[in-house]
Computed example of a mutant assay.
Amino acid sequence: MSTNIVWHEASISKEERRTQNKHSSFILWFTGLSASGKSSVANAFARTLFERGNQAFVLDGDNIRHGLNKDLGFDEESRKENIRRIGEVAKLFVESGQIVTTAFISPYQADRDTVRELVAEGEFLEIYVECSVEECERRDPKGLYKKARNGEIPNFTGISAPYEAPVNPEIVLNTVHHSIEECVAQLTAILTEKGLI
Rank of each mutant, 00 (worst) to 15 (best):
E9I: 11
I99P: 01
A189W: 01
I127P: 00
A44W: 01
S40Q: 10
G61A: 04
E164N: 15
M1K: 15
N82D: 07
V58S: 04
G61S: 06
L173P: 04
T31V: 13
L191D: 04
I64Q: 07
Y128T: 02
K14I: 00
S11N: 08
Y128P: 02
L28Y: 03
A10F: 06
E77G: 05
H177C: 03
A46P: 00
C131F: 04
S132A: 07
S106Q: 07
P169F: 12
E170T: 15
Y108Q: 11
E137F: 06
S96G: 04
Y163K: 15
A148I: 14
F57H: 09
V172N: 07
F30V: 04
K146E: 01
E16K: 11
P166V: 14
T188V: 13
K38P: 00
E9P: 01
F50M: 07
E123C: 05
R65K: 10
I180C: 05
V115M: 05
V129K: 06
V184C: 07
L118T: 06
E164M: 15
A46S: 02
A148H: 12
E130L: 08
E95W: 08
T3F: 09
L72A: 11
K142V: 00
N174D: 13
F74Y: 10
I127N: 00
L196H: 09
F45Q: 05
D71K: 15
E77Y: 07
N4S: 10
K22S: 05
H177R: 15
L33H: 14
P141S: 15
P162Q: 15
S13F: 02
F50L: 06
P141A: 13
L28M: 13
H177M: 11
F93S: 06
S25I: 02
V129I: 06
A189L: 12
Y145A: 05
